[in-house]
């Protein structure tokens, strides 16, 4: 609770939290907030020439190239972004933490193998790897989430590994080992709690990265597949209209930026609050 108050006390973080909450509300209550079903092609949704309608009274943000209501698609797109953001990043952080803690706590050959493998994964261009993986599997919502997790866990593993090693070498851990405290107790009672702040920060900041990667994959046409709306694939579908109907590209684009910004702002504030070594820096 005090953490929440500390976040709200910072104007930029409060703004970030507001955006995130708004996106969550949109995603959860999408069926009640949208005037039209997102996949319905409206009879009067296109001009006589077949062009998308500009923002107006009936279609608040206009319609897309198939005459579907942009606002409704945008609201449902929040669902896609958040589901992938939370699931993919959750898997990435869990996997990264598991690998990092195991390697850092056990060291030895297990640690060496795990960390050499993460080195290997670091050498892949992330987007290229994601594209190849997405092309390999038939991209559904969950596959896209999994692909992103497969790419993003590496950073977490590195950071957690370094922290685990540095904590295990501190005097208080040494003292416990010398009085015969079991490895399990040391790990769960004394090392993991120290890693918790880092994990919380990554769990937030990582969602921003994930939202951006999902948008990019969907923009390239290998992420979430239409007709399921995703902000990235809305831009992909409509980009041929970007000179005559720029709102079809820039409104979803703005939504992506806002959501990523929201998670970045909250994550940055969490880092300041949770990491005492950074206190007084700014």
């Amino acid at each position: 609770m005090s953490l929440l108050l500390q976040i709200i006390a910072r104007p930029s973080a409060a703004f970030g939290l507001f955006i995130v909450m708004l996106a969550i509300i949109f995603a959860v209550f999408a069926p009640w907030l949208t005037p039209f079903p997102p996949e319905l092609q409206m009879f009067d949704g296109l001009t006589i020439e077949g062009a998308p309608l500009p923002p107006g009274d009936v279609y608040w943000l206009g319609t897309d190239l198939l005459g579907r209501d942009l606002f409704s698609r945008l609201v449902y797109g929040a669902q896609t972004s958040l589901i992938i953001g939370i699931v993919a990043n959750g898997v990435a952080v869990s996997l990264g933490a598991l690998v990092g803690v195991t390697a850092g706590f056990l060291r030895g050959w297990v640690g060496t193998i795990l960390m050499r493998f993460t080195d290997l994964m670091m050498a892949f261009p992330a987007l290229l790897l994601a594209i190849v993986l997405a092309a390999l599997f038939k991209p559904s919502l969950w596959i896209v989430a999994l692909v992103i997790a497969m790419v993003n866990w590496v950073q977490v593993a590195r950071v957690i590994y370094i922290q685990t090693v540095s904590i295990s070498e501190r005097d208080f851990i040494m003292a416990e080992r010398s009085i015969g405290v079991s490895a399990r107790r040391i790990l769960f009672r004394h090392i993991l709690p120290h890693l918790f702040p880092t994990l919380v920060v990554w769990a937030t900041l990582g969602i921003a990265t994930t939202v951006l990667l999902e948008a990019t994959l969907s923009y390239l046409g290998i992420g979430v597949q239409p007709p399921t709306p995703s902000w990235g694939n809305i831009i992909n579908e409509n980009q041929t209209y970007f000179t005559s109907a720029p709102w079809l590209v820039f409104i979803p684009g703005g939504a992506i930026v806002l959501l990523a910004l929201g998670f970045n702002l909250v994550g940055d504030a969490l880092r300041d609050i949770l990491d005492p070594t950074l206190k007084g820096r700014s």
């Binding site: 930029s12 923009y219 820039f250 684009g253 992506i256 930026v257």
Partner: peptide, 29 residues
Amino acid sequence: NSILDRTLMVISFIGVSTPQFVVGILMLY
């Protein structure tokens, strides 16, 4: 800690929160 500092930092945050294809299309437009 001036207003200028805060504004610049918000701008830099927007920079890292914008996917490259959106920046690209915006520049083109």
